[in-house]
């Protein structure tokens, strides 16, 4: 499926309609079919698309077409502005604790990139703030999950707290935090096992970890290729844990990444960073305007 540029599509759809002047209801209805298709092709959740179109209709109806634009361009500008606004206008940052350590906890579905992102965040904090982080291996289920984090720690020359026989994750985290206190680490980043948001015992485990760690940041790690379920997943994690932000991974691929909009719409929580590759240096600040253009295929 070749994604035709939305901008071209809307232009084409509106070609035979009004010239300059006000945007008419007919213009909007014609354009909104194209907008709807583009957003669905980009994997924005169906219900989020519906709401978004409603908003656009209200915003655009009766609006004067600016001198320099034709009606098609004017509609596109409104869509792009609205989408950027929804993505969160300015770049969000991590919460920092008044007293060390600042605690960060990663959560998310299986295979989204949590463990890798623990390493990426540690590297970023070291490079930017000369931080001295401690990583805690809170995934006791996935085969070799602890090895994976330990190898990442080794690559960065960062300590990793792990216990190979303890079955209570909250306990491991508690002990890890003690070590961080003793060693005056200024950041603690907790890796957790991937889980489904509908998995009751494992969601309870995260609540326990949250209780003992009192994290300043709970980051939901989301795969940018996620489809329609992004809203359920985000709602599921947010309602249990009150997440503080989102990291969108695997944006180095060719996915349009509509999950970003879905998550923003249902949680209102900011996307803070994006994963741009498998290397530990491949973490970038999130740019709402770029994400808006990407989702629109422009």
């Amino acid at each position: 499926m070749a994604f035709e540029n939305l901008s071209e599509r809307i232009q084409k759809a509106l070609r035979n309609l009004t010239g300059k002047g006000k945007i008419s209801e007919e213009d909007i209805n014609t354009a909104s079919r194209e907008i709807r298709l583009a957003l669905l092709e980009a994997d924005v959740n169906f219900k989020v698309v519906k709401d978004f179109i409603k908003k656009i209709k209200k915003e655009a109806l009766g609006k004067e077409v600016q001198e320099s634009l034709n009606p098609g361009q004017q509609v596109i500008k409104i869509v792009n502005d609205e989408l950027t606004k929804m993505m969160g206008e300015s770049a969000a940052t991590l919460n920092k604790s008044k007293h060390i350590p600042t605690i960060i906890m990663m959560v998310g579905l299986q295979g989204t990139g949590k463990t890798t992102t623990v390493g990426k965040l540690a590297k970023r904090l070291i490079d930017k703030d000369k931080a001295r982080p401690l990583l805690i291996a809170g995934d006791i289920y996935r085969p070799a999950a602890i090895d994976q984090l330990e190898q990442i720690g080794e690559q960065l020359n960062v300590p990793v707290y792990s216990e190979h026989d303890e079955k209570n994750v909250a306990k491991i985290v508690e002990n890890g935090l003690k070590q961080a206190d003793d060693n005056k680490n200024d950041y603690v980043i907790i890796d957790t096992a991937g889980r489904l948001e509908i998995d009751e015992p494992l969601m309870e485990e995260l609540e326990q970890v949250k209780k003992v760690a009192q994290p300043d940041n709970i980051l939901l790690v989301v795969d940018a290729m996620t489809g329609q379920a992004a809203t359920d997943v985000a709602k599921g994690f947010d309602s249990r844990l009150d997440i503080t932000g989102v990291i969108l991974t695997k944006l180095d691929g060719d996915t349009r990444g509509g999950a970003a909009l879905s998550i923003r719409a249902v949680t209102g929580k900011p996307i803070i960073y994006t994963g741009q590759g498998e290397k530990l240096s491949d973490l970038e600040q999130f740019h709402p305007d770029r994400m808006a253009s990407r989702i629109l295929g422009m």
Binding site: I198, M225, G227, R256
Partner: peptide
Amino acid sequence: STGQNALLQAKDFDKTTKLTGLVLTKLDG
């Protein structure tokens, strides 16, 4: 849980190493 990008995945992997089938994971979610 993958969205429409899976189509591109199927096409590009098939071009590289001719595919004989798919495995669909995480359907318990």
